[in-house]
Amino acid sequence: MDYMTVRQAAEKWNLSPRSVQQLCTQGRIPGAGKFGKTWAIPAEADKPEDQRRKKQADQAGAGMPFTMMPLMNTPFLPGQCRETVESMEDGPQKDMAWAEYYYFSAQAEQAAQAAEPYLTSPDLGLRLSACWIYGYANLTTGQIRKARRALETVQRTLADGKNLSPDLRAAVSFVAAGAAVLLHLPLPEGLPSTREFLPLLPNGLRAFALYVQAHSLYLREDYAKSVGMAEAALAMGAEAYPIPAIYLHLVAVMDYMRLRQLPQAQGHLLAAWTLARPDDLIEGFGKHHGLMGGMLESVFKGNWPEDLRRILDVTYRFSWGWRRIHNLDTGHDVADNLTTTEFAVAMLTAQGWTGREIAAHMNISPNTVKRHLAEIKKKLGISNRNELKQYMLR
């Protein structure tokens, strides 16, 4: 009989090696045997059924409602995020809410581990939620193959979902659009218009879908319409849902920076921080750093230096993985060898800011800006500002 290792089984079944070892120890893989400190697993062994998925299927058969990103879709007061999750009834919905909490609080490893058991869940909402969280968490941890596999599952589900009910189709469209836009990739083929699926989403998911739409408008350089959408969503109740509201505020920062309206940009950044800081929901700040044109450094450096350091760590970790997919799929060589400060200076320079304007905004001297620009040109092998644009986020 042919055998495979724990690692080979983990890759075959899309599990972690630790999960496979636990299954072996529990006797749930027929024919598996331990030799010394290692396990030998029959090469033809099937992936054991996840007990939580079995329980979930039983509940679904009894009429359990469709579940999608439960924490994102739950209103709570700032500072009560963990308490909100702990108060949920034990089961798949609570498990997924924990995965969300770990993800949005920049605990990528824990988020991936919590989401992994639901990657093949029979509940489509849980499966899509798990793919999204697992995919983006693995970008941060540098597990690019796992990230791509999860995000490609979302696209396949969209392509195969023509016969789904309208609410399930809306959920698939929501996740597929979000996965594409946040990677700055073209929207997938077969995606319904926002007008078709937006009304079918519950309030919290609808608010996040509006953020995704606003982000898409930003990428198309329609900054006024983008910020108008974000402002309208916040005015119409999105603030009650802290996770979508944080992201809506951050996209507004991006827009106002492009519109050169710095007081408004700063106001939205502080509003996002007021919602995020009590629960340490810092992931979104790290992911949007490059698009906020030095606003984080300008506001946080003197007020929350330790938080800024942690946010920039998120930026470095996520950006490395993000570029491994974005650059390959688009052919757009976004710079990956600049420091976060250099990247902010480069972004503002590419947008037409003068050295003195950058210096005043980032609270540094004009000579420091010049030194950063010299280092940027050296690292990228360019000689002028026009060449710089091809290396910056679009």
Rank of each mutant, 00 (worst) to 15 (best):
M64A: 13
M64F: 15
F66H: 15
F66N: 03
T67C: 11
M68D: 08
M69D: 10
P70Y: 03
L71R: 05
M72V: 15
M72G: 08
N73W: 02
N73C: 01
T74H: 13
P75F: 04
F76W: 10
F76M: 05
F76P: 08
G79R: 00
Q80W: 11
C81F: 03
C81E: 13
V85M: 09
E86W: 00
E86N: 12
E86S: 13
E89H: 09
D90M: 06
G91Y: 05
G91R: 15
P92L: 06
P92T: 09
Q93A: 14
K94L: 08
K94T: 14
D95C: 13
D95R: 09
A97S: 10
E100G: 05
Y101F: 14
Y102D: 06
F104G: 02
F104T: 07
F104R: 07
S105Y: 03
S105W: 01
Q107S: 11
Q107K: 10
A108V: 07
A108F: 12
E109F: 09
Q110C: 05
A111W: 04
A112L: 09
Q113N: 08
Q113V: 14
A115L: 00
A115N: 04
E116P: 06
P117H: 01
P117F: 00
Y118T: 10
L119N: 05
T120Q: 08
T120L: 05
S121D: 00
S121K: 02
P122T: 09
L124V: 07
L126K: 12
L126D: 02
R127C: 02
R127P: 00
R127A: 01
L128W: 08
W132C: 02
W132D: 14
I133Q: 04
Y134D: 05
G135F: 02
G135D: 02
G135P: 05
G135Y: 01
Y136S: 03
A137K: 02
A137L: 04
N138H: 07
L139W: 02
L139S: 06
T141S: 03
T141I: 13
T141A: 03
G142E: 03
G142N: 08
G142I: 04
I144M: 00
I144Y: 04
R145Q: 10
R145A: 11
R148I: 13
R148H: 12
R148K: 15
R149V: 14
A150Y: 00
A150R: 09
L151N: 12
L151A: 11
E152C: 11
E152K: 11
V154K: 06
R156Q: 15
R156F: 10
T157V: 12
A159M: 05
A159S: 11
D160H: 10
D160N: 14
N163V: 07
N163R: 10
L164V: 13
S165H: 13
P166L: 04
D167L: 08
D167Y: 09
L168K: 15
L168S: 13
R169D: 08
R169M: 13
A171Y: 01
A171T: 15
S173A: 14
S173N: 08
S173V: 04
